[in-house]
């Protein structure tokens, strides 16, 4: 275990920002803290790094309680939303900053900075000042600066939010490849579901100062613990029914539900998990509405008052009013009691 956060609480005045936060970050893994603005995710990072004191709870790094340790001594790097490069220093000096503060020998400093300049592909910028490079390049420098002192943990607070979508994608790929290459432990704060699904080994979803679900990206996406998690991660269908002796019965038929408790439950399916099939003669539904989402289309179908939303790429074969069959997945179905 690299980092453990135990029972963190924090209030600013009367407003409670964090309410009993618990989670672990595994060594060499990429953990995303996903949540809306104001949900408390940046405050968690500031508490981990020591810039904000928690009202209650503890933070452990490699087993050591660092809750009240000086930020300068924690060995945790923090990459902010904006690059925040020191404007009076060149790119080279910015990267070398932490090493100079730690009084690293000149030869080691030069070697480390050269390595990072090459790793982040910014060698040609070494002698430039922050004002002379682009936003994407500035963020690369800030990442290099964070990596320079070989921190045991890297915290990133929406570091790509100021970049355009293409650059954002490129930077995400770069960070992921660096994390895998250098076996870095990263905690990454974002409000972008796709970004977190793309980059993360683990996701902790936070809302209103509480962690609602923690798990690997797939499980948080396909097996949400409740409707709040499900809707935050994207649209979904909840089909009400009853589980009896490992079988879930609903208006759309019967499905396997082994290892789930008997009783009333809802089957959860993402819109792309259900397929439309014109050739099917059973389980017929009527298309109520078709919406274009760019490359995909979203189709609303209705049967006996139950509306399902389905996403498909095939946008030429369906019209409003068509009657089509539905194909449901047979395995890895998720139920919420």
């Amino acid at each position: 275990m690299k980092l453990r956060v135990e029972g963190i609480r924090k209030a600013f005045g009367q407003e409670s920002v964090l309410k009993d936060i618990h989670f672990d970050a595994q060594e060499g893994k990429f953990l995303s803290i996903l949540g809306d603005s104001g949900s408390g995710k940046s405050t968690i990072l500031k508490i981990i790094t020591g810039l904000v004191e928690p009202d209650d709870g503890r933070v452990f790094l490699d087993g050591e309680d660092i809750t009240h340790k000086d930020p300068a001594q924690r060995g945790i790097a923090y990459v902010f939303q904006s690059p925040l490069l020191f404007p009076h220093l060149t790119v080279y000096e910015n990267i070398a900053f932490g090493l100079e503060v730690k009084k690293v020998s000149k030869s080691e400093l030069q070697k480390r900075v050269s390595e990072l300049l090459s790793l982040l592909k910014i060698e040609e910028l070494a002698s430039r000042y922050p004002a002379q490079i682009s936003g994407g390049q500035q963020q690369r420098v800030s990442i290099a600066r964070a990596l320079a002192t070989k921190p045991s943990l890297i915290l990133m607070d929406e570091p790509f939010s100021g970049l355009d979508p293409t650059l954002r994608m490129e930077m995400g790929t770069l960070i992921k490849s660096l994390q895998e290459l250098l076996h870095l432990t990263i905690i990454f704060v974002t409000h972008d579901v796709n970004e977190s699904l793309r980059l993360s080994d683990q996701i902790a979803l936070i809302a209103d100062g509480q962690i609602l679900q923690t798990g690997d990206a797939k499980s948080v996406y396909y097996r949400p613990q409740n409707q709040i998690v499900a809707s935050f991660m994207g649209g979904g269908n909840w089909i009400k029914g009853i589980i009896e002796q490992g079988v879930f019965s609903c208006d759309f038929g019967e499905f396997q539900a082994k290892n789930f408790l008997d009783g009333e439950a809802s089957l959860f399916l993402r819109p792309h998990q259900i397929a439309l099939n014109k050739n099917l003669k059973s389980d017929i539904v009527k298309i109520e509405e078709i919406r274009r989402l760019g490359k995909e289309i979203q189709v609303d179908v209705l049967r006996e008052g139950v509306k399902l939303t389905i996403e498909t790429f095939d946008d030429h074969r369906y019209d409003i009013g068509d009657e089509v069959g539905l194909e449901f997945p047979k395995i890895a179905l998720h139920y919420v009691n």
Binding site: T49, A72, Y78, V101, S142, T149
Partner: peptide, 8 residues
């Protein structure tokens, strides 16, 4: 804050 986390 960046400077502090870097070790200042």
């Amino acid at each position: 804050q960046v400077a502090r986390t870097i070790g200042c």
